[in-house]
C-alpha cells in the first residue's frame, strides 16, 4: 500500500494522528529543550524510528496468521510422531502442508522485507552516527559515566527508562515504547536517552542480521522450489528462520535483561568526602 493510500484509509487515521502528535511533541521535550548538549534523537532519527514501527506493524499483521498456522501444523507433526515416518500418507500430507505454509511465510516476507530492511538499516545508520559522534567522539570515559548517572537532586527518585535490553515485546510495540520513553524524557535525563539509543541501535543491528539471513533463506527455498524439491519436513535451518522471525517480530523467547533496582531510599543526606570526584 502506498503512503497516500494509507492516509486515505479511515482505520489508519487515528494512529497516524497520534503518531503525528508524538512526533511534533518529542523534539520540544528532548533535543530542542536541552539545547546542544546531547543530540541523540534529532528529528531524522525519530522519523526513522516512526517509519520502522509502521513497517514492522504491517509485517506483523501479514505474518501473524501464517506463523500461527505453521506452529499448529508443526505441533500436529510432532504429536502424530511423524518424524521418520515419511511413508505414512497422513504424515506425508502434514509435511506437504508444512512446506507449503513455510513457503507462504517466505513469500509474505519477501514482499515486506525490502521495506523493512530499508527502515531498519536507516534507523540503525542514523543512530550509529549519533552514538559515534555524541558518546564515542565527544565524550571521555569519565563524562560518559557522569552522563549515565545524571545530575539528580538528593533524595529525588531516579528517572529510568522502563524498557531495557531485549523486551520480549512485538517489534511494533517496542517502537511505540521507544517513542514514549523518548517523549517522556525531559531535562536532566540524558542518561536515560543514552541507554535508550544504545538499546534501539543494538536491536536494529540484530534485526538487520536476521533480515539478511531470512533473505538468504528465501533465495535458497526459491531455488529448491524451482528444482521441484519438496520440503518434506521443517529442517533446523527453516526452524531457525521461523524462531528468529518470531523473536524479532513478536518478541517470543525474548530474553528480558533486568537491571538491579535500588531499594527504597532512606532520605538521609549522604556524607560527602573531600576526596570524592
Amino acid at each position: 500500500m502506498k503512503p497516500k493510500d494509507r492516509c486515505r484509509s479511515g482505520r489508519d487515521v487515528a494512529p497516524a494522528l497520534a503518531i503525528a502528535c508524538i512526533i511534533a511533541t518529542v523534539p520540544l521535550l528532548t533535543g530542542a529543550a536541552r539545547g546542544p548538549s546531547l543530540q541523540l534523537f534529532p528529528t531524522t532519527v525519530l522519523e526513522d524510528i516512526k517509519e520502522t514501527g509502521q513497517v514492522a506493524e504491517e509485517m506483523e499483521s501479514g505474518l501473524q496468521d501464517t506463523i500461527a498456522r505453521l506452529d499448529r501444523q508443526q505441533q500436529l507433526f510432532v504429536q502424530s510422531k511423524c518424524e521418520g515416518a515419511a511413508d505414512d500418507p497422513g504424515c506425508a500430507q502434514i509435511s506437504r502442508q508444512l512446506g507449503s505454509t513455510y513457503m507462504e511465510m517466505l513469500e509474505t516476507m519477501s514482499q515486506r522485507l525490502p521495506d523493512m530492511e530499508r527502515a531498519v538499516n536507516s534507523t540503525r545508520d542514523s543512530l550509529e552516527t549519533r552514538l559515534r559522534a555524541e558518546l564515542g567522539l565527544k565524550m571521555t570515559p569519565w563524562t560518559l559515566q557522569e552522563t549515565l548517572l545524571g545530575q539528580q537532586p538528593e533524595g529525588s527518585p531516579s528517572v529510568e527508562p522502563k524498557l531495557r535490553g531485549r523486551s520480549g515485546l512485538r517489534l511494533s510495540q517496542r517502537f511505540r515504547q521507544y517513542y514514549q520513553l523518548v517523549a517522556q524524557s525531559g531535562r536532566n535525563t540524558e542518561h536515560s536517552l543514552a541507554v535508550v539509543a544504545s538499546d534501539i541501535y543494538l536491536d536494529m543491528e540484530e534485526a538487520s542480521v536476521l533480515i539478511a539471513q531470512t533473505r538468504e533463506e528465501i533465495g535458497r527455498a526459491t531455488l529448491l522450489e524451482e528444482l521441484n524439491q519438496s520440503f518434506g519436513v521443517i529442517t533446523p535451518e527453516m526452524q531457525a528462520v521461523v524462531d528468529g522471525v518470531k523473536s524479532i517480530l513478536f518478541g517470543e523467547a525474548g530474553q528480558v535483561v533486568e537491571l538491579a533496582g535500588p531499594p527504597p531510599g532512606s532520605g538521609e543526606v549522604a556524607y560527602q568526602s573531600p576526596l570524592e570526584w
Binding site: 559515534r132 529510568e160 531495557r164 541507554v195 539509543a197 535483561v257 538491579a260 531510599g265
Partner: peptide, 26 residues
C-alpha cells in the same frame, strides 16, 4: 549505603550496554 551501591551496580550494567553500542558505532 544501599542506594549508592545499587546505583553503582546499575551504572555498570548501563555502561556495558552503552559501550557495546557505542563501540560498534565507532
Amino acid at each position: 549505603d544501599q542506594d549508592s551501591y545499587y546505583r553503582a551496580d546499575r551504572l555498570l550494567k548501563e555502561t556495558e550496554l552503552v559501550l557495546e553500542a557505542t563501540c560498534r558505532a565507532c
